[in-house]
Simulated scan of single mutants.
Amino acid sequence: MSHKRIVILISGSGSNMQTIVAASQAGKIAGEVVAVISNKASAAGLGKAQAAGIATAVLAHGDFASREDYDAALLQLVDSFHPDVVVLAGFMRILTSAFTQHYHGRMLNIHPSLLPKYKGVDTHNRALAAGDSEHGVSVHFVTEELDGGPVILQAKVPVFAEDTAADLQARVQVQEHGIYPLVVHWLCSGRLRLTAAGAELDGELLGPQGYAAD
């Protein structure tokens, strides 16, 4: 089984990026992270990637007149690394349809909510405001709809009465670091694919909440 080439896009600390790089370098992912790209030169994750021996690049969105212009340049930059898989790991940009279509079936995102709940931002505060008893994280294929692509895998965490948004974020992040490298491996190893009917794992169509362990 050939190793796939992975490009990761970040905007901040890169904690999920780190777990994917570590899993790849430990042989737990059937792929190699060949580049980490950020839209912010200040992203702390860039230094972490460099320390792990990964090539990095910065493409600042403020240097472009429009979202379309930025995404066209970003697509060229990403493609220069010849990726098989593109992973969004805290990349805080809404992508154009031209970009998402180019990587259709090859691009993953992680979102801190139990999709389809709480698409967009501020998910932890929204879960608290709604009085939810559980919260969580979803890994999904990226499509043109914001946070709307087929869910592959979710992890749930309890919500306690005394929780703050920071408490929830910390609890959710632990789960993020467990499930994201796993899904990246599924895609790199050929077990996971996006079809017209939705996400399939080992030839079985996944449900609306993704893979359900027995």
Rank of each mutant, 00 (worst) to 15 (best):
L74D: 09
G47K: 13
A52L: 06
I110G: 05
R126A: 15
Y70K: 10
V33H: 07
S24W: 08
G53N: 09
Y118G: 08
H135S: 12
S13Y: 14
V78D: 01
V34E: 08
T19Y: 12
S80M: 04
E134A: 11
D147T: 12
G136C: 03
H61N: 14
V34G: 02
I37M: 01
I110T: 14
H82G: 03
H102I: 02
N125Q: 15
M107S: 05
A23K: 09
V139C: 12
V142G: 03
A44F: 15
N39R: 04
A72N: 04
H111S: 08
G53D: 10
S133T: 15
A22Q: 15
V86T: 12
L75D: 14
T19I: 11
V34Y: 03
D79G: 08
S80Y: 05
P83Y: 03
V21A: 10
K40M: 06
G90T: 02
A127E: 11
Q76W: 00
A44I: 07
I10Q: 05
S24N: 05
I37L: 14
H124V: 09
H140Q: 14
L88M: 14
G53T: 06
L128W: 05
S42G: 13
Q50V: 14
G27C: 04
G47N: 14
H102T: 13
A130M: 10
G45K: 03
A57C: 10
K28A: 14
K40Y: 11
F91P: 01
A89K: 01
G90A: 08
A22Y: 00
Y118C: 08
V87N: 06
F81V: 04
V121I: 15
V58I: 12
I20R: 05
G136D: 04
V87W: 03
Q76Y: 00
V85Q: 10
A98G: 04
A73F: 00
A73N: 07
Y103M: 08
S24A: 15
V151H: 04
L75C: 14
N16W: 04
P116E: 05
K28R: 15
H124N: 13
A44D: 13
V21P: 02
A55R: 15
V137M: 01
M17N: 07
G53S: 06
R67N: 13
V33C: 13
N16T: 12
K28M: 14
A44Y: 12
G148L: 10
I110D: 10
S24F: 05
S24M: 07
